[in-house]
């Protein structure tokens, strides 16, 4: 009971748990897109500690959510990294960052489960990807297109594929209704369900299956939304809840935030991310170089 607790016990606990800790000298806080968790935790984090002597404290969440957290003042990281220009524009327009640099790029792929009965078909590479997705009984996973850019990009890719194949109904055949509750899961759950064999295949950014060791197949350009694809697919539109969306550029942008508690550390980190060491780590985790992508705004 509290009356029996001596002051020394309280002091020991407070010291032990470090609740009264003052701002740590060497930490740098980065808010980043959830799909980057593996490369941040296992690849970049240890290298940043070694090269820059900074302790990376990451916050991995949906990039749009993070952008709104930042502009509302609920969180105050040093650096913000997101995929596609959309979330970064929210931060830039609100004046919370001045410039965002492209640091890497990824592409849309189809990840599949090694336990799936369709795994051999994917692996053999003899059947076209769209023919496999059309197979009856294939359990496909994707993210919510209303809230997640990846979900939107996948639907746009299916529609573009339908145009190329001369099958206007292709996207509807594969994805069903826009909010198909048999296919839609949160991003981390899609990958987890693939691992557990509850899904046969899923839309993914290349860096996701690479980090988890899941097998995947490439999509042909421009359906993979690789460099220059947004121009090739400029005519594509997806209308959701009264808004019109175009295929996104799958570029990772990083920006030092104007209210960063440690702006100097954030700038050092951003410069380091563009250097060969960081780029080779990114490459190892399935990211491509951002060559050709322009800074924002």
């Amino acid at each position: 009971m509290p009356n029996k607790l001596s002051i020394s016990v309280w002091a020991a606990l407070i010291t032990l748990t470090g609740v009264g800790q003052t701002a740590s000298a060497q930490r740098v806080q980065v808010a980043y897109a959830g799909s980057m968790t593996a490369v941040m935790n296992r690849g970049l984090g240890p290298a940043i500690r070694r090269d820059l002597r900074l302790r990376l404290e990451g916050r991995a969440q949906g990039a749009y959510g993070l952008a709104h957290f930042i502009t509302s003042g609920a969180i105050r990281p040093d650096l913000f990294i997101c995929i596609t220009p959309g979330p970064m524009r929210i931060v830039l327009r609100a004046g919370f960052a001045r410039r965002a640099r492209p640091i890497a790029r990824t592409q849309l792929v189809i990840a599949y489960s090694a336990h799936s009965r369709f795994a051999k078909l994917f692996q053999a590479g003899k059947t076209a990807w769209w023919r496999i997705l059309e197979k009856p009984g294939l359990r496909l996973g994707r993210t919510n297109p209303e809230t997640d850019p990846q979900g939107r990009n996948f639907l746009l890719m299916l529609r573009a594929a339908g145009q190329k194949l001369g099958q206007p109904q292709f996207a509807d055949t594969i994805a069903g209704p826009t909010l198909n509750r048999r296919q839609i899961y949160p991003e981390a759950e899609v990958m987890a369900r693939l691992q557990a064999g509850q899904l046969d295949a899923a839309a993914a950014y290349q860096c996701q299956p690479v980090a988890l060791g899941l097998p995947y197949i490439h999509l042909p350009w421009p359906l993979n939304l690789g460099p220059g694809s947004h121009r090739a697919l400029a005519h594509m539109r997806l209308r959701l809840q009264g808004k019109s969306y175009r295929p996104g550029r799958l570029v990772f942008y990083a920006a030092v935030l104007t209210r960063a508690p440690h702006p100097r550390r954030a700038r050092r980190l951003l410069h380091w991310l563009l250097r060969p060491m960081a780029q080779s780590i990114l490459h190892h985790y399935g990211y491509d170089a951002a060559a050709g992508a322009r800074s924002l705004p």
Binding site: A38, A60, A188, A192, A196, A211
Partner: peptide
């Protein structure tokens, strides 16, 4: 949550 995003199940 971090582990789920990092390494999956």
């Amino acid at each position: 949550w971090i582990n789920l995003q990092d390494s999956g199940l």
